[in-house]
Simulated assay, not measured.
Amino acid sequence: MYIPEVLFIFTFYICSCYGGEEEKRLILHSGDDIAQEFQKLRQELQSLQMNHTREIQLLMTNYTQEVESLKKNYTQTIESLKRNHTQEIQALMSTQTAEIDSVKATQKREIQALNDTQSQKIKSLKNELTTLKQDQGSTYIRWGKTTCGGNGTHIVYTGFTSGSPYDKEGGAAKYICLPKNPTRAKYVDGIQNIGGYMTGTEFDIYLNIFNPFPRNMQDQDAPCVLCRSPKPTTVMVPGRTNCYPG
């Protein structure tokens, strides 16, 4: 710090009283005294400057230390918050993951139980449908046959083609298939001349001119078979050996 040199002149007014009159005198310092005073002031200023510089340096040091301490504390606080925040996030994520896994497991069990229930219902419905299919169907008689001929059909019973004699009245209106082992409601041994007549039927080839069978069927009993089909309807189409399409 530069201090300009200034010449200070110190004046003192000394008052004295002699005989009631005040006498004033101006005392001037000499050049050496002024130089000494100036040197003294310069030393004091330099001392003040040095003290001020040391104080500033001390303040700067303290400030720097405080700033570093604050930075350190701030960094530690941030790291602590980060760790705590990370731990909280990890704990939250673990909790959420556990909850999601629990919900998934519950949903999986519920879906499996629902699938099992549906599978059981479907199986039950299939069984009911099979039973209904078995319970439903239709029957028909194959005249002159002892088998049903396949197509999912099966035999209910076999018997003989029967009807009323051509010369008797009061019997069957059309042919019926009598079973081979009938059961009678009432039975009296012998012939009774009451009621209608029911007789068997046999093949009669006219003069052996045309025989539609692969072997001789003259005077052979005409068989019949009652067949059951799983299909709901059946129809007999005369004059054909097979069904129409559809």
Rank of each mutant, 00 (worst) to 15 (best):
L58M: 11
L58C: 06
T61W: 04
N62S: 00
T64E: 04
Q65Y: 01
S69V: 03
S69A: 13
L70C: 00
K72L: 12
N73M: 08
N73P: 00
Y74L: 12
T75N: 15
Q76L: 06
Q76R: 05
T77G: 10
T77A: 14
T77Y: 12
T77I: 06
S80Q: 06
S80C: 01
S80L: 03
L81W: 05
L81A: 04
K82T: 11
R83P: 01
R83M: 08
R83T: 11
R83E: 11
N84I: 10
H85P: 00
Q87F: 07
I89N: 09
M93F: 08
S94R: 05
S94P: 00
T95M: 10
A98E: 10
A98V: 04
A98I: 04
I100M: 03
S102M: 01
V103Q: 08
V103I: 06
K104T: 02
T106N: 14
E110S: 05
E110N: 09
I111Y: 14
I111D: 15
A113P: 02
L114C: 09
L114R: 13
T117H: 09
S119A: 15
I122R: 15
K123T: 14
K123Q: 15
K123R: 14
S124A: 15
L125W: 13
N127C: 05
T131R: 11
T131P: 00
Q136F: 12
G137H: 03
S138I: 06
S138T: 11
T139A: 05
Y140D: 15
R142F: 07
R142C: 09
G144L: 06
K145L: 00
T147Q: 08
T147Y: 05
C148T: 03
G149Y: 00
G150T: 02
N151V: 01
T153L: 07
H154W: 07
Y157K: 07
G159C: 08
T161M: 12
S162T: 14
G163V: 04
P165N: 03
P165S: 03
Y166N: 13
Y166I: 13
Y166G: 11
D167I: 09
D167S: 14
G171T: 04
A172R: 03
Y175F: 15
I176M: 10
I176V: 14
I176T: 12
I176Q: 08
C177L: 00
C177M: 01
C177E: 00
L178M: 10
L178C: 04
P179Y: 01
P179M: 00
